[in-house]
Amino acid sequence: MNQLLKKYPEEIKRILAKYPTEQKQAAVMPLLHLAQGEIGFVSRTAMQEIAEITGVTTTEVASVVGFYTLFHDAPEGKIRLQVCTDVACDLRGAKEYLANLCQQLDAKPGETSMDGFITIEEVKCLAACDRAPLFQSQIGNELEYHENQTPTRTMDWLRSMSAALNGTPLRSSASIEEAPATKSTDGGGNE
């Protein structure tokens, strides 16, 4: 039974209604957002379910997950902390800000903190260059901007979140399914 369909019948109907009936594939991205909202990444099963709903192959759904950086195919920290270090932000100290955070969290960009709570990521321009340094948090599929940051402000926020989210569960409890292809984090493969 299609769990996604069972869980969100109305939502899925609404999504499908956006596109012409013979263009169900268009619903792949919104459905991926929906599935990712559940556990913070898209499982193999979810890909199969989305394929079923939209009438495409699981591979076609997976390809979309692989291409877009905000879709994840494996579980990471509860909070993904995405710091923009792109051109304009770099000019306003974003790289130094990131380095400081990394040191405090004891994790390099792309890594998850020891407690499994925070995955720190370096991302490209977030269209808020006038308020650098800034980061975006991704929790489940909820994205939120945090502008004009200092390391202290960010760490305070993280501590408050940790308390709010009960500090647990640290890592998503969903089982890790083995993906046949692994997602490249920087779009520039060099294994």
Partner: peptide, 12 residues
Amino acid sequence: GFYNRGRALEIA
């Protein structure tokens, strides 16, 4: 299909 993008593009 393709997985990833840019230079990391691979068949999967």
